[in-house]
Amino acid sequence: MRDMDIGVGSFVFSGGIASAIPLIKTPSHLAAPTFPKMLRAMRKSLPIILLGLVRVLLVKGTEYPEHVSEYGVHWNFFITLALVPVMEVMLHPVMIRVSVTAIGIVVAISQQLLLSKFGLSDYVLNAPRVDLISANKEGIVSLPGYFSIHLLGLTTGLLLLPPSPSYFRRIQRSLQTHSLNDRALAERYAVRQNGKTATELSGYLVLWWALMGLCSLLKLNGGNGVSRRMVNISYIFWICAYNVSFILAYLLLDMVFFPSPSTTSKTKKIDQNSASSLNPILPTAIPHPLLDAVNKNGLVVFLVANIATGLINLAIPTMYTSDFWAMVILCGYSYAICATAWVLKGVRLRL
């Protein structure tokens, strides 16, 4: 399995985690009218779509080597990233009453049914590129799979980011009974419950690895193994299992070396005049300043890394580079990306 297969799936999964923030900060956001939220999501996605179109022009104009079998002739990962958040907003009315995990699994199963039972797998692998849709068949067909990864990442974020893993379930019940009280929720969950969060993440960890193994054992993936090209069900569960494994390991290390205050201790009284008192996401210490610098401008660092990769591949015949010089280039590349994040740490760039 290539690093890129892990990278793009993990990027979508982490985007799902981050998309939990508005649902936690402002619980009523979930029940807000869908159409205005879709327009806002589309406006936020517009710069990423423009970046995707610019990438297409640059790649075609410079004859940059590319594998059209990844996303298609014109489609690229930026377009997928731009569409997935808009698709999520469309499901907000459903998320009030249905578990986000269940929605994500249903989307994953539906994606696999389309691949196995409705011929999309054969279409992706064998259909000629005769029109705009078939020219971009990989990107179009893989989109529901990436959407499923995003939703299952959102599930993880809704467990991990609030003080209690049951926080979002409380929001759902309150919205269903029209008794939502932001301040009451913030006061009730004033102390982090990392033990409970670790327990629930462990359950999800077992679930994702078990589902991935079951899909492989019973060949529910159509016999195609783990396929990033089609984003089949094995790939979806593999990405979820991989990321939750690391997140749980980081959480356990955090609990050991940076323990939260005991849930039995008295919490400080919430400032009734402070807007932050309604914010249930408690600030946590960043273990390394460089991580904080990258987090502040994640998309910018991602774009710089992509541009640097393209320039290196245009300037150097990387396929014929010796192992020694390959390591020199990789180390220099990593240092340059980290240095860029560090220089930009004092500003917050928004695209």
Rank of each mutant, 00 (worst) to 15 (best):
157 G>T: 00
319 M>Y: 15
142 S>W: 05
152 L>H: 07
272 Q>A: 11
285 A>F: 13
312 I>Y: 05
58 L>S: 03
120 L>S: 11
196 K>D: 14
187 E>P: 06
235 Y>G: 04
321 T>I: 15
199 T>V: 14
251 L>D: 02
215 C>P: 05
114 L>E: 02
15 G>T: 14
228 R>W: 09
264 T>P: 03
338 C>L: 09
99 S>R: 01
32 A>V: 00
338 C>P: 02
305 A>P: 08
225 G>R: 04
157 G>D: 01
247 I>K: 03
46 L>E: 10
217 L>N: 08
42 M>H: 10
84 V>S: 05
287 P>A: 09
184 A>C: 12
41 A>F: 10
7 G>E: 15
198 A>V: 02
307 I>N: 08
89 V>D: 00
109 I>F: 05
31 A>F: 08
327 M>W: 14
109 I>L: 12
144 P>N: 02
14 S>H: 15
121 S>G: 15
107 V>Y: 00
16 G>P: 05
249 A>S: 03
217 L>A: 13
62 T>I: 06
173 R>C: 12
289 P>K: 10
136 N>S: 04
262 S>F: 01
3 D>I: 14
298 G>C: 11
65 P>M: 10
19 S>L: 14
263 T>I: 13
201 L>P: 09
259 P>F: 06
333 Y>P: 00
283 P>E: 08
60 K>P: 02
281 I>K: 06
67 H>M: 14
116 S>V: 14
191 V>S: 07
142 S>A: 06
312 I>D: 01
155 T>R: 11
301 V>S: 02
316 I>Q: 03
271 D>T: 11
56 V>M: 00
74 H>P: 02
287 P>T: 11
26 T>V: 05
198 A>I: 06
239 I>W: 07
311 L>Q: 12
109 I>E: 03
348 R>K: 15
62 T>R: 00
347 V>L: 12
175 L>A: 10
46 L>Y: 13
29 H>Y: 13
325 W>D: 15
83 L>D: 02
165 P>K: 01
179 S>D: 12
207 L>K: 02
241 A>W: 04
156 T>S: 08
173 R>A: 12
59 V>Q: 08
297 N>R: 04
119 G>R: 11
116 S>R: 12
116 S>Q: 13
190 A>C: 11
180 L>K: 01
281 I>R: 10
196 K>P: 09
172 Q>W: 12
34 T>F: 07
185 L>R: 00
15 G>F: 09
92 H>M: 06
20 A>M: 07
271 D>P: 05
280 P>S: 07
323 D>E: 15
15 G>W: 02
60 K>I: 03
77 F>L: 01
52 G>A: 03
286 I>M: 15
85 P>V: 12
183 R>S: 12
190 A>S: 14
194 N>V: 04
81 L>D: 03
302 F>L: 15
136 N>L: 13
189 Y>L: 07
308 A>V: 08
164 S>L: 01
154 L>A: 09
44 K>P: 01
88 E>R: 07
223 G>R: 00
79 I>G: 03
189 Y>S: 12
202 S>R: 11
17 I>P: 07
50 L>I: 08
252 L>G: 09
162 P>V: 11
125 L>H: 15
335 Y>T: 10
171 I>S: 03
203 G>V: 13
149 I>G: 00
141 V>Q: 13
252 L>D: 01
216 S>Q: 15
